[in-house]
Write a protein that binds this DNA or RNA. Structure first.
Length: 282
DNA sequence: TCTCAGGGGCGAT
DNA sequence: ATCGCCCCTGAG
């Protein structure tokens, strides 16, 4: 086991919040299932002594470092965005999620599954999909499943995908998996500037402004963007007084103008904060 | 058992 | 720019 070291981070909000749907919360540990990696985090009761392990390759510290973005100075980010009164309040209440850098295909497919669903429901769907289509691995006598490879999803029928509770999203998931397998997405997507990359993503059937922004923030590291879902828009209108009739782009630009290059971090903190409260009322 | 909304996007007006 | 609809599930 390896020592886990990311100070000032609320791990529960980081992996069980709204940016990743592939973590299982067990009584004594968290287990994350990715395309080619399982990550286990334990000893959480002593926050200073939390440890991690990776499978099938053990002690894969480069994976951990990249996934949890350990090169990012969280303290610096907090210093910059906590000038805002709402962010400051959220942070004072010990809500400090960290942004992850997740696998591209997995992120895209996961968010295609998210439309008009609650978070618990999204998690259930993705777990069922992994259990059925992903490879099995045994850890400490328990079975886990890797997130399915994109080719497998592309070769799964829409009806089969619907068995995972995907409903009308099944077609989007299958079509986009095929799209990726056929190499139709520009391979340099991770090097394009924000607006170009977003344009490319929106060519995928089922991907609009919001899902594109989720992929851009949670997988491609465009930290200056806050994806605007129903909660995000509520934060802007109810907390900051924006006109609800503003377009997605207008709201998005307003937020980025306010918080600058760390808007995504600010947005995530606010999102988890209001989501945890269940409402925006004081 | 029933209702309602849930981290959207598409296609028709 | 607005609106009905897509399908299913968790929460009350």
């Amino acid at each position: 086991m390896q020592q886990l070291n990311f100070p000032n981070t609320n791990l529960d909000l980081t992996v069980m919040g709204g940016q990743a749907f592939n973590w299982i919360k067990e009584p004594k540990r968290y287990v994350g299932f990715m395309v080619d990696q399982i990550v286990v985090i334990s000893n959480l009761n002593k926050s200073d002594n939390a440890t991690w392990q990776t499978y099938p390759q053990n002690n894969n510290s480069s994976y951990i470092s990249k996934y949890f973005r350990l090169d990012v100075d969280f303290g610096d980010i907090v210093d910059q965005i906590s000038k805002d009164v709402h962010v400051k309040t959220a942070l004072q209440q010990n809500h400090q999620p960290r942004l992850l850098k997740q696998d591209f295909d997995q992120t895209l497919i996961s968010y295609l599954c998210s439309a008009r669903k609650n978070i618990k429901s999204i998690r259930n769907s993705l777990y069922k999909m992994s259990k059925e289509l992903g490879d099995k691995v045994e850890i400490d006598g328990q079975e886990y499943f890797y997130f399915p490879k994109t080719e497998i999803i592309a070769n799964t029928s829409e009806n089969k995908l619907r068995e995972f509770g995907l409903g009308f999203r099944a077609k989007y998931v299958r079509d986009s998996a095929k799209y990726l397998c056929e190499g139709k997405l520009r391979s340099e997507i991770n090097k394009l500037e924000y607006s170009k990359a977003k344009e490319e993503l929106k060519k995928i059937n089922g991907v609009g402004d919001k899902i594109a922004d989720c992929v851009l923030l949670y997988s491609l590291g465009h930290d200056h963007i806050m994806p605007l879902d129903v909660w995000g828009k509520r934060i802007l209108t109810d907390l900051y007084g924006l006109n609800p009739k503003l377009s997605y782009q207008q709201m998005s630009e307003w937020f980025t103008n306010r918080f600058g290059k760390y808007s995504g971090w600010a947005g995530q903190i606010l999102f988890e904060w209001v989501r945890g409260r269940g409402s925006l009322s004081a």
